[in-house]
Nucleic acid binder design. Sequence first.
DNA 1: GTCTATATTCAGATAGAC
DNA 2: GTCTATCTGAATATAGAC
Lengths: 192, 192
Amino acid sequence: MKVTTKKEDFLQASLELIHEKGFKATTMRDIADRMGFDVSNSYNYIKSKQDILEFFLFRTSEEFHAAMNDILASSYPADEKLKQVISAHIKVAAKKPFEVALMVNEWRNLKEPKYTEYIRLRDLYERKMIQLLQEGVQTKVFKDMDVHIATAVILSSIRWLYTAYADKSEAELNPIELERQIVGLVFNGVLV
Amino acid sequence: MKVTTKKEDFLQASLELIHEKGFKATTMRDIADRMGFDVSNSYNYIKSKQDILEFFLFRTSEEFHAAMNDILASSYPADEKLKQVISAHIKVAAKKPFEVALMVNEWRNLKEPKYTEYIRLRDLYERKMIQLLQEGVQTKVFKDMDVHIATAVILSSIRWLYTAYADKSEAELNPIELERQIVGLVFNGVLV
DNA sequence: GTCTATATTCAGATAGAC
DNA sequence: GTCTATCTGAATATAGAC
């Protein structure tokens, strides 16, 4: 079994509560209650409530960027690269659904200068995706299309993935089949 | 020029502020400041802060449902129906970007019983979309696919649309070209 | 690490005068 | 419809004792 420090437990409890109620609606008291101690103890583990948000957002963002960088630096053709990006998103969403939920829903609650810093990372990620699609268009692997719109559509189309794994109620989705279906749609669309 | 009541002005100011700062972060004082009067006056127009959220969320939800119902009740084949759903989403996003932003970002701030009521409307809308795709698969217009996953992917893929119209900074997107690009992707994917 | 106590600030909402 | 004044509650965060 996994050994966790109390700080890790505290952050995990925070993460789950924020996912359930939202960042603003989650109070330090809520988190302390779930940990079974008084609010004031929370400040043994963090300096401020903002710290919790920053910790998860930047850590998970880094994970996405690392995967994207490896994929872009490979010699695969663009279609295989795109498939691997989709695959990476499914893997992260399946392994860390609450972290991804935070990225999707709570980044607006960051305060300056972290807010601007985070936006920059998001924009950078988007630009890497645009680059990938552009490469595919130039090599005639992808059709001629507006790569900016296509990037927005594709990134948006996989943004719901965390919900499939965050809610235990959902039937456990087979990640392999999920990837097959999504790649099928992104590559060839819905028409026969 | 358009004649507006002061209540309409108040709600519009609320809408824009909530879009800028988020619902929880927007205070009644913020809204009153923008209107140029004291907080207490706000309660001439609404009973509570929740009212603002409920008003916009349910009104815009109704708009989406009405469009979807008309499309489903038509005798068009499934591919044309799907195209019209996409077209409707673009139209609403272009005309009411802040309202759509609220639907995407702030529905979690509804309180019971409105929260449950709203979730039901969302689920209903999703089921209508599943029905549309199922019809297309049965009539061999769409390929054989997991219609639940396809519904999640397609609805998610057009969820970003409001951002293209909410931020004035973005170059004004031509809705006709936007529709052409998105329909092209949803129908045939990115491959040549 | 845990507690009690408290400082500080700020939010939603109401009462009542003009 | 507008204001002043105020109630009530709640939140983040800190100080200091055990």
